[in-house]
Simulated scan of single mutants.
Amino acid sequence: MTAKYLDSYEADRIFTMENLINGSPIWKFIWESKNIITEHLTWKIGNGGKAKFWRDSWNGDISLAEEMDDPVWINKVEALVGPFVDDYILKGQKEAEWIEWKIMGEWKMENCIKLKDILSRKKKIIYQKEVDCLLCRASKFGKYKVNLGYEILRSRAQNVDWTSALCWHKMVLPKARVFLWTSLHGRILIGERLKLIGIASPSVCILCKENEETTDHLLFWCSYTKRVWDWLLDKLQYGSVRSQSLKGFLLAWPTCYKKSKWSTLWVVSPAMLAWHIWKERNQRVLNEEALSFEILIPKIKVAIEEVINVKVVGRKYCTYSSWDKEMERMWNLTKNSGYKFVDKK
């Protein structure tokens, strides 16, 4: 990662980078997380060669840029004098002496007065030969740790929507969950996506040969796919108004059966259906082999049943309703497959 994305091997480089370098989704996530972690970092001033005078927090205070609130003026001064704390220290200072600040007389008068007032209120700094040190304010001893960063990120986390729960539930087959997550984020390589990255590809849906191939069309609106979804909804005894998108449809997917014996059907089936539609699409594109609706449906049904029957060992449930009985009739589910009934009382 260091060799690929950073132009310096300094430990604090990730926190002081100014421009987002084009990279992988993982790198972009690191960049976004960096901005959150940076709020909890401050510089301990040594010789002033690393900390930025205007942009960084130093000695535990918020940045001068935030306090001054005049970005145009700050940009002009920064271009004239320099970006680092060292550029604003009066020259000729000796080690272990209090730092005195260089404030130009030709600067904007009201801003000079405001800056002098802010600096006078800051804790006095002793000039040292040691380089500036980056500290974490959220840590007792100022040292950043991964678990501390995790706690900071977790405190900012938003509630995970139901589609994420469908993607990453432990009952879902790994390759199916990854595919569903990729689909919901518009990242699968189909005609629409391939055009964006400059690859020539047929743009017509290979399943229906009627409409442009987009993620929502392929996995939700295609006439072939709609028949598969209608079959699944009938097997689950669920009636729903069709949404404008796959994600919108899954956001309304039932979540009230979590403690029911066969509630895992709600979790497993959407990802498995999408995964088999994707495999059928690729078979037609790469091998020119097509399965009819009547042949594909039993394959999806068996795949869902296998996942349910293999992964339920030791699972606890609280309710056994008429819906569960109907599911046992309509699906080939192992009734004594290791489930344990737990009385809610």
Rank of each mutant, 00 (worst) to 15 (best):
M109E: 14
A138Y: 06
T182E: 08
I113A: 10
G186I: 04
S183H: 00
V178Y: 10
I99N: 00
L236Q: 03
E213T: 03
I188D: 02
L173Y: 14
K143L: 13
K170D: 09
V172W: 11
L166I: 15
R193V: 13
I197T: 09
I206F: 07
M104K: 12
K235M: 15
L196F: 02
K209E: 15
I199W: 03
L135E: 12
N111E: 12
I99C: 01
C133R: 13
L135R: 13
R177Y: 04
W181V: 06
E151Q: 14
L218C: 08
W168Q: 07
E97K: 11
R227G: 11
F220P: 00
E210H: 06
I99D: 00
L196T: 12
A138K: 12
Q128D: 07
L115D: 04
K108M: 07
L218S: 04
L233G: 02
R187C: 10
K114T: 08
K226D: 10
G198V: 11
L115G: 05
G149Q: 07
H169N: 15
E192A: 08
S201M: 11
W107G: 04
W231C: 03
G142H: 05
V172N: 09
T225A: 14
L153Q: 09
C222Q: 11
Q158A: 12
S120K: 12
I190Y: 01
Y127D: 02
D117E: 13
N211P: 00
Y150Q: 06
W98N: 11
D234C: 09
W162A: 06
I152T: 04
E213W: 04
T214E: 06
K108A: 03
I125G: 05
I126R: 13
I118N: 04
I152V: 14
K114V: 06
K129S: 11
I103S: 06
S183F: 00
W181S: 08
E210N: 10
I99A: 01
K235A: 08
C136Y: 05
L119R: 03
S183A: 15
Y224N: 04
I125T: 13
S201Y: 14
K226W: 08
D117W: 06
K140G: 01
V228S: 00
N159W: 06
D161V: 08
M109I: 13
H217T: 07
K143G: 06
I125S: 03
E130T: 13
R137S: 15
N159M: 10
K122D: 02
Y224G: 02
A200M: 07
W229Q: 08
I197A: 04
A157N: 09
F179R: 14
I118D: 10
R121D: 12
K209D: 15
W107L: 07
F179V: 00
N159G: 07
A165S: 10
L135N: 04
I103G: 03
L219I: 01
W98Q: 12
I188A: 12
L166S: 07
E151Y: 03
L218F: 04
R177G: 15
L184G: 04
L184W: 05
H217F: 01
N211R: 13
G198S: 11
S139V: 00
G191R: 05
S155V: 02
E212Y: 12
